[in-house]
Design a protein around this nucleic acid. Structure first.
Length: 928
RNA sequence: GAAUAUGUAGCUCAGUUGGUUAGAGCACUAGUCUUAUGAGCUAGGGGUCACGGGUUCGAGUCCCGUCAUAUUCACCA
């Protein structure tokens, strides 16, 4: 028999190689077949309400989606293991312009002839396709969720909820129709929400234009002769809508003579304007405050209209002349200042961005095409002082990337002030827990400063604004019955119900307009902002399910959702219920590349989750999410993934080793009582208790990277390099059933059972795989995800013992360092080749001598001698970290035991065995 | 342009109320073992703590400024 065969070497079928790409799909199939999520034992217990934010049903999932859903899955799984019923209902956002845009592209010219209902039908099909695609992609990540019953914002029932929720706003009088300037895309022919606008570089003409002063020159200036107010603008096409010139009441304005003309501009702007206009000779005639000019009248440069001089605080001195061209129909500030002076939000531009017929000179012209024409006209008329092109960033449509315009149109708004929506929303923010806490400040200032919510869109793919307005005066019918009738119809037939049902069937005969008494009404054609759709998800999902639980315990999305879903959900919920829909909001950062740059197609640095899954497996993606501090931007690169796969292997291999040494261990028969375990076993278990504590509190605080670092460190430092290395002697060489070996196995068993459960929320696939290789009789649960977290082991390891072992660990390190010199000098190879002699200071010696018999096993050397001093000629290692500790290493002169590799001294009268006495005993199954 | 966040070894992260020589794991280099073997063990090199000022006996930590990256807001009339 070979010596090797007399040892209890590890045995296991648990593969070292993970083959994740092959095994994960099998595991997914098993989870599905066994309905592991659906039939979870925590069902019906106390709920943890985790509400999924709906991704947009367009395109394949990207790293951001993967990050988000994996984080959610960590939480679902650990809450479930904690005993909560962590139901997770995934959702998708299905309406809206991006999908309509895609469908429009596919249809090309045909779309003009298609009916709206046909376009909606195609959009529905398109959205459903991507819901199905993304669902499969999410499942592949190992996400536990109710995939068969997701919520879609285009579900008829969901659409009906949208109608009902909007009805609540209407009922409370918070909805109004207003003529206000909004972002408008002339190519998509719709109003855009703030969130649908993105900024990009754009070249615009920068022009200075003269407005002749007709009357109202302040007395203090005397007779100015041919005086002009000079304005600056980068959008000449808004000049036809000019109704006023705004001056800041407190700024100083000067009248400057240039040639035979007099220009009025802000004093502080004068010097830079002179330079820009290249004017050599000028003379300041006098000055006064802006407020002195109030109600003066100017002449529009090319339209027969008066332009009033008004005062506004929005005027700045950073650019321009301090005299601000004001077109209330084309700008937010203009609109507000215009309201004060009773100016109408005049908008002579139609949906396509074309000047309407009444516009002199430029009727029928597209606004940006009109820019050069207007400039040319002013040049000829002599009203243009200066013109150059400037590059600046300008709002663009997020879909078609065309520059948008600001344009006053009739839109539906939800008032931020009526019913105290803004105030109550801010109070709701205060009541919510924001993680990290700066998220609170972010959303707070957004809600504080935002304008009224423009909820109407002039598109086809969405839920209609179900209001009927009087054909005479525009007042809308505000009755609950109408809304409910519509909601019921939508519930059955979807939003098409609204578009297909004649108004007469919706409104009871004889209904009169409350305002003017008219009996004729028309239906609104606009649809609702998609942010309203997803904003009602708390109602549609949390309230309208069989077991309603409202509000949510947690929302978890990327930091951009402070302006998106967190925002719209808050307003919707506060508006209708007076209370916020979530107790806590957790945010994560963005996925960026290895250099910290954002991923974009144009930069070519996009890494698709699918590619990582194909190459490394979803488990590596999960480990990646766990390894990084997601509260900041998180990086992904090939190097990072390479490190992670190595780290994964280490974890897997460590656990494999535990399994391998338990091949003959029956937990029900062979377990050794905790109090009978050797001190080192109890030490490692006490270390495991510390790890367990750390990990569970990290989970509690959603700090998964703490899990990753402490867990890998435990595997590498505490187990692989320390405990397992030392334990080999005992589990390999002792008699299989000896108390010493069983004690070691008991420890390994406890570690294995604990570790597999601690990793389960993160390394879900691997934990489940391990679960099948546990010693027989270990667990009743068929899935690791049905188990609960390990309890703390009661090993009674007090502070003194802990200090002792920390010292021994440190000393072991010093012994290794000391041996390194001998190894370099080829005196020893393996550490067991050596005898260690050490001089210790009394304080250390007192402790270490208690472990005299165990030292050689702890240090993994053949002999340890504690001596008082060394001879002079010996090469002594002097410790730096443990003052007074000196170590001398030499080669053991005896014979190496073939079996346990410890060296032994051959007695003269001994037999000629190649084994030491200890092994001879062990072979006879004696002792220990 | 503004607000917020971040910036510690090649990578991922620690660094407590300011207090010795800034840590860990991985990676790298070298050695060792062949009893976890596409494994295990050991040692080593590697950091101007983004940069520049300031407060202090003392700053990775506190203050100010600059730069970089990301997100959001606004780019105006």
């Amino acid at each position: 028999m070979e010596t090797k065969d007399t040892l209890n070497l590890p045995q296991t079928d648990f593969p070292m190689k993970a083959s994740l790409t092959k095994r994960e799909p099998e595991m997914l199939e098993w989870w599905a077949k066994e309905k592991i999520y659906e039939e979870r034992p925590s069902k019906g217990k106390e709920k943890f309400i985790f509400h999924d934010g709906p991704p947009y049903a367009n395109g394949h999932i990207h790293m951001g989606h993967a990050l988000n859903k994996i984080l959610k899955d960590f939480i679902v799984k650990f809450m479930s293991m904690k005993g909560y019923d962590a139901e997770f209902i995934p959702g998708w956002d299905c309406h809206g312009l991006p999908i309509e845009h895609q469908v429009g592209k596919k249809l090309k010219e045909k779309k003009m002839s298609l009916k709206k209902s046909e376009i909606r039908k195609q959009c529905r099909t398109y959205a459903q396709e991507f819901v199905d695609i993304q669902r499969e992609e999410f499942k592949r990540l190992g996400i536990f969720a109710d995939w068969d019953n997701p919520y879609l914002t285009m579900d008829y029932s969901y659409e009906a909820t949208i109608v009902r929720e909007f009805g609540k706003f209407v009922e409370k009088g918070m909805v109004y129709k207003g003529l206000k300037p909004v972002h408008w895309c002339t190519s998509c022919r719709t109003a855009l929400a703030e969130a649908e606008v993105e900024h990009a570089d754009h070249t615009s003409p920068s022009v200075y234009v003269k407005f002749a002063v007709k009357s109202g020159v302040p007395d203090s200036l005397g007779d100015l002769g041919k005086a002009y107010m000079v304005i600056w603008t980068t959008t000449p096409w808004t000049l036809p809508a000019n109704l006023a010139i705004s001056l800041h009441p407190e700024f100083q304005y000067v009248a400057v003579a240039v040639g035979d003309e007099v220009f009025v501009v802000a004093e502080d702007r004068l010097s830079s304007l002179i330079l820009e206009w290249d004017i050599k000779d000028y003379k300041i005639l006098g000055g006064c405050k802006g407020k002195d000019w109030e109600n003066a009248a100017c002449q529009h440069p090319f339209i027969d209209r008066e332009s009033k001089v008004i005062l506004g605080e929005h005027v700045t001195l950073e650019q321009g002349t301090g005299c601000v061209h004001t077109a209330p129909g084309h700008g937010q500030d203009d609109y507000i200042v215009g309201l004060k002076y009773g100016l109408e939000p005049y908008n002579p531009v139609d949906d396509g961005g074309i000047f309407i017929a009444e516009v002199e000179h430029f009727a029928g012209m597209f606004v940006r095409k009109a820019n050069p024409e207007i400039i040319e006209k002013m040049k000829q008329d002599g009203s243009l002082i200066h013109h150059e092109d400037i590059k600046h960033s300008y709002p663009h449509c997020w879909r078609c990337h065309q520059p948008v315009i600001f344009r006053a149109t009739n839109q539906w708004f939800i008032s931020m002030e009526k019913e105290g929506l803004r105030k109550n929303a801010l109070a709701g923010i205060e009541r919510t827990k924001w993680i990290p806490d700066w998220g609170k400040g972010r959303i707070y200032s957004m809600i504080e400063n935002r304008p009224d919510w423009c909820v109407s869109r002039q598109r086809a793919w969405g839920v209609p604004i179900t209001l009927c307005t009087c054909t005479e005066c525009g007042e809308f019918v505000n009755t609950k019955e109408v809304f409910e009738r519509v909601a019921e119809g939508v519930e059955k037939r979807g939003a098409d119900f609204w578009f297909e049902t004649p108004v007469e069937e919706l409104i009871a005969k004889g209904t009169k307009c409350e305002k003017c008494g008219n009996e004729k009404f028309k239906k609104e054609n606009d649809i609702l902002d998609v942010w309203f759709d997803s904003g009602v998800s708390h109602a549609a999902v949390l309230e309208n399910r069989p077991n309603p639980s409202w509000p949510a315990d947690l929302y978890l999305e990327g930091s951009d959702q402070h302006r998106g879903w967190f925002h719209s959900s808050l307003l919707e919920s506060i508006g209708t219920r007076g209370k916020e829909p979530y107790k806590a909001v957790l945010t994560h950062g963005y996925v960026v590349d290895g250099k910290g740059k954002k991923m974009s197609k144009s930069a070519g640095n996009v890494i698709a989750p699918q590619k990582i899954i194909d190459q490394h497996g979803a488990e590596i993606l999960r480990l990646w999410v766990a390894s990084e501090n997601y509260r900041e931007d998180i990086r992904v690169s090939n190097e990072i993934l390479k490190r992670l796969t190595e780290s994964y292997r280490k974890i897997r291999n460590t656990i494999r080793y535990l399994i391998g040494n338990l091949y003959d261990f029956d937990p029900n028969k062979d377990r050794v009582l905790l109090e009978s375990l050797p001190e080192i076993d109890r030490y490692i278990l006490s270390r495991f208790n510390v790890l367990r504590e750390k990990i569970l509190s990290a989970f509690e605080n959603y700090e998964f990277h703490t899990f990753y670092h402490s867990f890998t460190n435990f595997c590498v430092v505490e187990l692989s390099a320390f405990y397992l290395d030392i334990l080999k002697d005992r589990v390999y060489t002792y008699p299989a059933k000896s108390q010493g070996r069983r004690a070691g196995q008991t420890t390994l068993y406890i570690l294995l059972m604990g570790m597999v459960r601690l990793i389960a929320p993160i390394l879900s696939f691997t934990a489940e795989e391990i679960w099948r290789y546990l010693p027989k009789g270990s667990a009743e649960e068929k899935s690791v995800h049905y188990s609960s977290f390990p309890a703390s082991e009661d090993v009674e390891f007090d502070e003194e013992l802990t200090r002792n072992w920390e010292l021994l660990v440190q000393l072991k390190g010093e012994v290794s360092k000391a041996s390194e010199a001998s190894r370099r000098d080829k005196v020893i190879g393996h550490s067991l080749d050596s005898i260690i002699k050490m001089v210790l200071p009394d304080s250390i010696k007192k402790i270490v001598s208690q472990y005299a018999e165990e030292l050689k096993f702890i240090f993994i050397v053949s002999q340890v001698e504690l001596v008082d001093s060394f001879g002079d000629d010996e090469k002594i290692y002097v410790s730096e970290s443990l003052p007074g500790v000196k170590i001398f290493t030499e080669r053991h002169p005896g014979q190496k035991c073939e079996r346990c590799w410890h060296y032994f001294v051959v007695e003269s009268n001994a037999n000629d065995s190649l084994n030491c006495q200890r092994c001879q005993d062990h072979l006879l199954d004696v002792g220990e």
